[in-house]
Design a protein around this nucleic acid. Structure first.
Lengths: 215, 215
DNA sequence: AGAAAATTTTGAGCAATGATCAAAAATTTG
DNA sequence: CAAATTTTTGATCATTGCTCAAAATTTTCT
């Protein structure tokens, strides 16, 4: 029968509250014990419902992990936004600040940040659109300073450069924070990143000038 | 009782053969179905032994995955070595060739390459030394051309730069081959990588000159 | 309000999986 | 060849994500 959408029945209210509790509990659990430490039974106990009830709130673990990822991406986005506008407006230094903010966020939210990249969708299931959109937002922070540095480049070229630069920084952070390869002290890693970002943008500018005129 | 080490009894022979079969089967299985598609029962069936026998050949799944990783790293090392010496000897172009070789290897061995980074040791177990050593070897390819470019830098500084550069390329390959973010066609990715590596080394050289004299 | 209908929650249970270990099989020794 | 030793086996355990019939709850209808 058709639901009364105005009264917001107790059931729906409770459900929304529970769903939100579930996502928060999952977030805490990943932060504390890593993606592989996330267990449905622990979650159910934590939010006070039956094992099976988790699947009334969320289609499966994949969705839950993606929801947590969405929250992590949102916070990351905020951190990058803050870095974008704090400090001197020079595009190069803005790029450096954003890179360092990315590094700091990853270090401070290690497990949640890792979960973003470790998680693999169960075979032949596609990542839902809302999650993909979340991810794409990140490049936009880096896009603006790049556009200022390279006014002649097309939107598409800039997009490619932005993704490349972002990926390079991501790699440095990823391998830098990985204890698998030699663990690097955080200050050293930050210095390394700042140096390479400056070098990359210097190099890109030099090649840009070379290309479009001044020899 | 004390084993006769000369006769190489049938048992040991068989065991070594089985162990080797096991690792090869695991390699094929990861290549075909990804790290998460690796199952002990399938492995046992594949090499023709009982389920439990897998644990006579290998301590646990972690060790097996590390053994496969060791083989993958060896092949990667060979690919990078080949790139190091093929083509013009200019250090910059050598760096570009190595980066592209890394990219190509990852693309051609996608699942095995991913397994190298996806795998996480079970909680509070340490990666054995032989595996760590394998991993460190990779930086050495990039170290030599860098030493040629920056003769004044100390061994330690060069090591840091080498790791940074390697990590940056790794990041571009990792996010570039990840269908999670927008899938990039391989030729475009290679172009992007070559461009950024050239820019990075240009930038690094400029900053080096600036630092140690001409300015 | 109260009974019937519809919905939601529950938790026992399923299937898959990594790992174990007592018993069976094979090998070596004497 | 029989006893002693080692190796292999596969039934079994514990853990998981997930399902689904039954129980509990909520809503609807009179």
């Amino acid at each position: 029968m058709i639901k009364n959408l105005v009264k917001m029945p107790k059931t729906l209210e409770r459900r929304e509250k529970l769903r939100s509790d579930l996502i928060l509990a999952a977030e805490r659990m990943i932060a504390a014990r890593g993606l592989s430490g996330l267990k449905t039974r622990d979650l159910a106990r934590e939010i006070g419902c039956a094992n099976g009830a988790v699947y009334n709130l969320v289609a499966d673990m994949d969705e839950l992990i993606l929801r947590v990822g969405s929250r992590t991406l949102l916070r990351l986005d905020e951190a990058l936004s803050a870095a974008e506008s704090a400090g001197e407006p020079s595009p190069q230094e803005t790029l450096v600040r954003i890179a360092l903010a990315y590094c700091d966020f990853a270090a401070e939210n290690l497990q949640l940040w890792r979960a973003l990249f470790e998680h693999r969708m169960e075979a032949d299931k596609v990542v839902p659109d809302w999650s993909v959109q979340d991810q794409m937002q990140l490049f936009r922070h880096i896009y603006q300073p790049l556009a200022a540095l390279f006014p002649k480049r097309s939107r598409e070229e800039l997009g490619i450069t932005a993704r490349g630069l972002f990926s390079a920084v991501h790699g440095m952070v990823a391998l830098g924070l990985e204890q698998k390869l030699v663990a690097v002290p955080l200050p050293a890693l930050r210095k390394e990143i700042a140096g390479l970002v400056r070098a990359m943008s210097d190099g890109l500018i030099a090649r840009d000038v070379e290309r479009s005129g001044g020899g």
